[in-house]
Design a binder for these strands. Structure first.
Length: 650
RNA sequence: GGGCGCGUAGCUCAGCUGGAUAGAGCAUCGGCCUUCUAAGCCGAGGGUCGCAGGUUCGAAUCCUGCCGCGCCUGCCA
């Protein structure tokens, strides 16, 4: 409703400027006044007009305020300060609109958005860095859907890359295991943990035995050819680790529509097609001299922003004829926009509890009726900011092929890494040198087997939450308590990953992340639980909730909302839509998290200041009860966008 | 060298397209549980918004130049 009134006022002002001044090129921006007593919306347009009209802003504001036509829902306009026009809402109108459910219906927006996220190498367990990617991506998807966008979620599986090859090397050469033995091992619990350690061992082995890197080449060629024991091992590893990742992400309420696999990009000749295009359009050329001799490269001028020497070109096809990640990604991006003229085949991989099917690509025709994947109008690639160089090259590839519009719409949804605080490193038994000890954070490498495994961290959170729940509700059955603790733990985790803006490095601190106080997910959940408790208790006592629309009319609303604190509380609670829209516009999920926290704070103030059930005045009691219900629904709404559930009790 | 990002309270961070007295959490100190669960609420202290210029009626926000830190700049991804 706030959103709607804002737009309505914006339009009236814009129309007025057009009709009376002939001004159409001035964007009318509305603000929220610094002081609440100034009203609900401020129009600073007089400042912008001052220079153009050569009049003091104050005079322009006076004039405008007097001339502007009446706007439904706006009670008054008044001039303040140096030239602000402050608008006050008609409180009865506003409250009644919220109560009678005149909320805006979410209008579907044309076009399909693809969000690609998670993309974990299927060779070892996920770590906390991956969680940031998945939570960010999943939340962004929820945000887009909340504003009416059609979204397809993709999780790219690099099942033919170096990382998978290295684990295959580990099983084959270091452990002497056959593909069957690995397959047997994969049925056991925590196969992903086993691979985590093995991968670290292989990396260490390469360090000490550089000649062993030949094994990697051998494995990569076997995988690309799809033949031999190493290829079979790699497939077993990739398939099973992929499933392990899906299980980990499911714990966080994260799922996908389709999993495009790199093996199909190769087998179905996606790359070959893209390669031809790139050659034809001169986006890449065969280098005959210098360090990149024998490679197909893209010249730096296509992707570089600064002045860069000509030999800084990016290798797309290696001298041994294999294609780099960037090359495959260009083919993949082309497919996402429906520009490749090819498609995958699909089969259902699994069905989630809610009936949602996760599809995976295959290289042969399938009998299953799959949805139409790809063909997006807009693409978001959730990939950490360290890869922005590669992402620039990919976008440059699209541009070089003449797809400038799609290159613009292929957005690198970048975020900074998750590092560990020195304190947490010590806690995890990671040795630090003197320099690292005094840094704000320490980057940890998955390659060395350092870092925090996602499932371990989730388990630890649940354990901590269970202690809290058990202390408060010792009489509840353990299974119940565990379920509640899990919801709280996931809420804490998701909130922690979302509370920072994308471009700050998270210095992950266990102690801080395990805390359930202050600006945390559980704080917001707690507010929602409190709201529901009031409603439940009232319903138990009175045999149900009143029919608010019957009991509270527009006049009653106006009467109650004349009381300033009530008005401010309702106003704050009604801004969820605005917050979500702004977060989508700025591409910043943390804005939703911030709003959720503020909303919870506001509700806690309400909770503390105005006992609902004990209120004596009947109209006021009903009003307070409705406010509680409104807060509850708004809290649920934003928590849903954040992917955070509300437990039965806390 | 070049590219990207960061620098705001003791610590961790918000601050939307420039706007009216710079915000929150944690930590510290002091209050509040016989009233809808204290994972809560109230209060206090704490800031030359890295530095210097510039644009503007107005700059934490935009521009330029410095300083400090991080990441990238691979025939790994």
């Amino acid at each position: 409703m706030f959103h709607r009134l804002e737009r309505r006022l914006q339009r009236v002002v814009a129309d007025h400027l057009r009709d009376c001044f002939g001004i159409t090129d001035l964007p009318v921006a509305l603000e929220e006044p610094r002081q609440k007593s100034f009203g609900e919306l401020a129009i600073p347009v007089a400042f912008q007009l001052a220079r153009r009209l050569r009049k003091p802003p104050r005079a322009i504001a006076e004039e405008l305020a007097a001339q502007l036509p009446a706007v439904e829902g706006i009670a008054s306009l008044e001039v303040a300060g140096g030239g602000y026009i402050n608008a006050r809402f008609d409180r009865g109108y506003y409250g009644w609109a919220l109560l009678s459910g005149a909320e805006e219906v979410v209008e579907p927006v044309p076009g399909k958005v693809i969000v690609e996220h998670t993309n974990i190498n299927p060779n070892k367990a996920a770590h906390i860095g991956h969680l940031r990617n998945a939570v960010l991506g999943d939340t962004f998807v929820r945000m887009l859907r909340a504003v009416g966008r059609q979204v397809e979620v993709q999780n790219y599986i690099d099942n033919t890359g170096v990382q998978v090859a290295d684990v295959a090397v580990g099983f084959h050469f270091l452990e002497g295991k056959s593909a069957d033995e690995v397959a047997q091992l994969a049925t056991a619990d925590r196969f992903d943990y086993y691979c985590w350690d093995l991968y670290a061992r292989v990396s260490a082995y390469y360090q000490d035995h550089p000649e062993a890197l030949a094994w990697r080449q051998q494995a990569l060629h076997a995988i690309e050819a799809g033949e031999g024991e190493l290829a079979r091992i790699a497939q077993v590893v990739a398939d099973n680790i992929m499933l392990a990742h899906l299980r980990t992400m499911r714990r966080l309420g994260i799922t996908y529509d389709v999993l495009p696999r790199e093996s199909e990009i190769l087998k179905l000749q996606f790359w070959a097609t893209a390669f031809e295009l790139l050659k034809q359009r001169g986006a890449i050329y065969y280098e005959t001299a210098g360090k990149n001799a024998g490679c197909w490269v893209m010249p730096a001028r296509f992707f570089s922003k600064g002045s860069v020497p000509e030999d800084e070109s990016k290798v797309i096809v290696r001298s041994d004829g294999t294609v780099t990640y960037v090359g495959k990604d260009i083919a993949y991006q082309l497919w996402k926009f429906g520009l490749l003229g090819k498609d995958f085949y699909y089969r259902p991989l699994l069905v989630e509890e809610d009936g949602h099917t996760v599809w995976v690509t295959t290289d042969e025709p399938q009998p299953y009726p799959a949805p139409q994947f790809g063909r997006a109008t807009e693409v978001y690639n959730v990939i950490d900011s360290r890869q922005s160089y590669l992402q620039d090259v990919v976008a440059a590839g699209l541009r070089a092929l003449g797809f400038t519009e799609q290159a613009e719409k292929s957005i690198h949804f970048a975020y900074e890494m998750v590092a560990l605080s020195p304190r947490t490193c010590v806690e995890l038994g990671i040795e630090l040198n003197e320099e690292d000890r005094h840094r704000p954070y320490v980057e940890v490498s998955g390659r060395k087997g350092l870092g925090v495994k996602a499932d371990d961290f989730i388990d630890k959170l649940i354990e901590r939450a269970l202690e809290e729940v058990s202390a408060r509700h010792p009489d509840e059955p353990l299974e119940e308590r565990r379920r509640v603790a899990t919801i709280i733990a996931i809420g804490a985790l998701r909130y922690f990953m979302l509370r920072f803006t994308r471009n700050v490095v998270i210095a992950f601190d266990l102690q801080e992340a395990l805390s359930f106080e202050g600006e945390t997910g559980p704080y917001v959940q707690y507010a929602a639980v409190r709201a529901r408790n009031i409603l439940r208790k009232y319903a138990e006592r009175e045999g149900g909730l009143p029919d608010f629309r019957q009991v509270l009319g527009r006049e009653a609303m106006a009467r109650q909302l004349a009381f300033e604190p009530f008005w401010q509380l309702l106003l704050a609670a009604s801004k969820a839509e605005v917050a979500i829209h702004r977060a989508v516009a700025s591409g910043e999920p943390s804005h939703v998290a911030k709003y959720a926290f503020q909303l919870a704070q506001t509700f806690n103030t309400f909770y503390h200041d105005y006992p609902v059930i004990h209120e004596q005045d009947p109209e006021r009691r009903t009003f307070l009860l409705w406010m509680t219900e409104y807060f509850r629904s708004q809290l649920h709404r934003v928590l849903d966008v954040l992917g955070i559930q509300v437990p039965e009790y806390m």
